[in-house]
Amino acid sequence: MKFLVVDDEKDVEILFRQKLRKEISSGEIEIEFAFSANEALELLRSRKPPDVMYIFSDINMPGMTGLDLLDKVKVEFPEIKVSMISAYGDGENYDRAMSSGAKGFFTKPIDFDTLKEEIQGFLNK
């Protein structure tokens, strides 16, 4: 099961790989990383059909925001689930994400226990 994490902070990759190292080494999940919304879209478009099942994306990124990425993914790849991860838990972002079809909304610092529960719930379905 492949996940895609989108964040302009590159160290997020090391963090995710270490936090989820057991799930990764057991082969339960695979994670790919993109450091901008555009990079994420290119990655998705380069594979037909896309193998990514679930995207976790930051909202505030230079260039295209995570919310714009969400809109584009929902149009081009409606089968892929998207959750937002934001430093701001403000109502406006939350409402816009949810009404655009986001599956979940996580605030930073990421609580990996909750995130793992979300991933497990998705795997068990």
């Binding site: 902070e9 160290d11 963090l15 270490q18 936090k19 430093a87 701001y88 930073k108 610092p109 990421i110 990996f112």
Partner: peptide, 21 residues
């Protein structure tokens, strides 16, 4: 605040995962 919070989040998350390791 946001700019300090970002590195602080990393400091917290990386030290947390280091303890686990």
């Amino acid at each position: 605040a946001h700019e300090i919070k970002n590195p602080l989040n990393f400091v917290n998350n990386f030290s947390e995962v280091s303890i686990e390791m």
